[in-house]
Amino acid sequence: MLKSLLLGAVLGTSLIASASAQDYPTQDIDLVVPFDPGGSVDVTSRLLAEAANKYLDGVSVVVSNRAGGGGVVGQSFVSKAKPDGYTVLAMTSSVVTNPQLKGAPYNIEDFTPVAAYNLDPEVIAIPASSPFQTIDDFVAATKDRPLNITVAGIGTSHHMAGLALTSAAGLEFNYIPANGFGEQLQAVVGGHADGAFWPMGEAMVHAEAGTVRILAIASDARDPNFPDVPTFEEAGLNIPIWATFRGWAVPAGTSDDTVSFLSDLLKKVFEDDTYQEKMAAAGFDPIYRDAANFQSIITAYSNQVVPIIEDNGLAK
C-alpha cells in the first residue's frame, strides 16, 4: 500500500515535472537588464534576445531595463521574482561583490546560473604616447613610484585586479576612480593618467585605432587580435585569469528543466552565425558556458575577489 502510494507520488511528480517542461515557455520571458539602455549589458542582451527569438515558438525574450543603484535595483528585483523562468537576470560579476561592497539585499546564492555568454579578460592599457613599450618597462616603473592608474571605480573588479597585482607581483598603484569609461579614456588618451585597467572588450577598438597600447592581458591564452601582447602569467605577474563575466541567471528555486531549457537556448544562440558577427562587431567575444560551467566561473571569481575585499577592508 505504502509502496504503491510512494510510486504514485513519484510518478505523479515526474509527470508534473515533464508536463511543466513542456509547458515552458508559454509566455514572454523578461530579460531584466539592471542598467540603462545603451550600456554593454543592454547591448549584448538585445543581441541575445534578437537571436533567441528565432529559436522560440510563439513567445519571445523581452529585454526590460530596470536601472538604478548601480545595478542593485534590477538585481534585487530578480532575486525576489517568482522562480518560474519568466524573469531572467542579465547577470554580471558585480552580483558577486555588490552584497559586500554596496550592501545589496541579496546573496549570490539567491540566483541560479543559466549560462555565460561573454568573458572579458582584464588588460593593462597605457597612452600611445607613454614611454613604456613593454610590460617590463611598466613593471619597472611601478618599483620607482606608484603609477597613476584610472579604474572604473573603487571596489570594482578592475580596482581589485590592481590590488591582486599588488599582492601577487608586488606592483604599487595610485588609483584614480572614474565615472564611466569615457572619463577613463579621456584620462588615458590625454595622458593624464599613466594607464588603466580595462576589460578587453572596451579597450580593443581604441588599441586597434592606435590611441592606447595594451601591455598585458589577464587570460589563459593570448588574444588572436593582439598576438604580441603577453598574458599576465607570461609577463610574470602571477595571475592566471582575471575576467569579468556576463551571463543569464534565474531566481534560486527555478526548476532544473527550465534552467536547462534556457541554457540550451543560449547554446543555440551561440551557434548562430549572425549573432556571432554582431557580437564581434560590437566588440564582444561570444562564448558559451553551460550552467555548471558558469557556476564554476562564478565560484572561481568569488574565491578571487572575496579575500581581496577582506584583506583591503573594502567591505561596507
Binding site: G38, V43, A209, A282
Partner: peptide, 27 residues
C-alpha cells in the same frame, strides 16, 4: 573623434551605435 561622450545625452549615442556594431572613435 575619440569615443569620449561630451554629455549624458551624447553618451546614449554610444549605445545606439553599439547595437549596430559601430563603436565611436577614430576607427
Amino acid at each position: 573623434s575619440l569615443g569620449i561622450p561630451g554629455n549624458s545625452t551624447s553618451a546614449l549615442f554610444i549605445g545606439a551605435m553599439a547595437l549596430h556594431g559601430l563603436v565611436p572613435g577614430p576607427l
